[in-house]
Design a binder for these strands. Sequence first.
DNA 1: TGACAGCTATCAGAGTTCTGATAACTATCA
DNA 2: TGATAGTTATCAGAACTCTGATAGCTGTCA
Lengths: 141, 141
Amino acid sequence: MRSSERIGGDIKRAELELMTAKAAAVRPAGLTVPQYSALLALSDHPGAPAAELARLCLVTPQTMTTILQNLVAMELVERTPHQWQRNVLENRLTEAGYATFRKADKGAVAVEQKLADAFTPEERAQLRALLQRCSAVLSEG
Amino acid sequence: MRSSERIGGDIKRAELELMTAKAAAVRPAGLTVPQYSALLALSDHPGAPAAELARLCLVTPQTMTTILQNLVAMELVERTPHQWQRNVLENRLTEAGYATFRKADKGAVAVEQKLADAFTPEERAQLRALLQRCSAVLSEG
DNA sequence: TGACAGCTATCAGAGTTCTGATAACTATCA
DNA sequence: TGATAGTTATCAGAACTCTGATAGCTGTCA
């Protein structure tokens, strides 16, 4: 099997370009892409524990802990003990965190919009269906 | 724009599953995916300097240096000064490096084959064309 | 009540990846 | 010859990411 016949390379390259474009889009807000992803998840799930944010962002809990530590240091996120379960820490956006997220989100949405505009609705549905089949096949075994 | 409408998420998820599957495939050989990628590039380009391997693997030279350092420590790669240009270091697979690469490559190729088999030739061409359009659009601006 | 599974969090260690800055060599061109 | 551009390599710092191991809490079920 020659490299030129491998689908994986095309997926990787597209993901790489996506990350590069998104990184450039959220950098003016002072964020990295994983930090933006965490803020996005947090804006949709206020008070979610780190483990839940990790599932939403497709990373491990350890990774999310690292990301949250940096966001707390930047005073964009607050971690407070859960009212009932003392073992759980609730995460919430601060005022500054919400403002920073909105600024970064404009850039990130622009990237997604640019990507979406490159396809007809039919092509878009086709691409997503094919990608979802990739995910399904790969996660089988 | 809702998250469910974003193409980026599908690309990311597919790439994530691909990395997970490949990681599992090359782990028995004692390699990580980036290490395998470096060995693959090296097997096609014996003696290539780190900068060229970095371009082939779509990473920065600094990253490739880190990867090569680990591979040298594992005695899978040898770095020798270039005969003419003293500034350049040539990288070559050792015997053990070649053996390890072949073992890992079997697993990696199996993953690619499984992925390819999930599509008809027409679908495969379609998917690759759509992904390449993604890359092109994203790297424009 | 006690054992167990499943959730939470965290520490430790390693590998990958980037940006930014620095240095040295080669080749070209004024 | 000397300046410039384009290579190469590397150091320093930071962020992200994983595996593996440990510990506490909650709920269920025997």
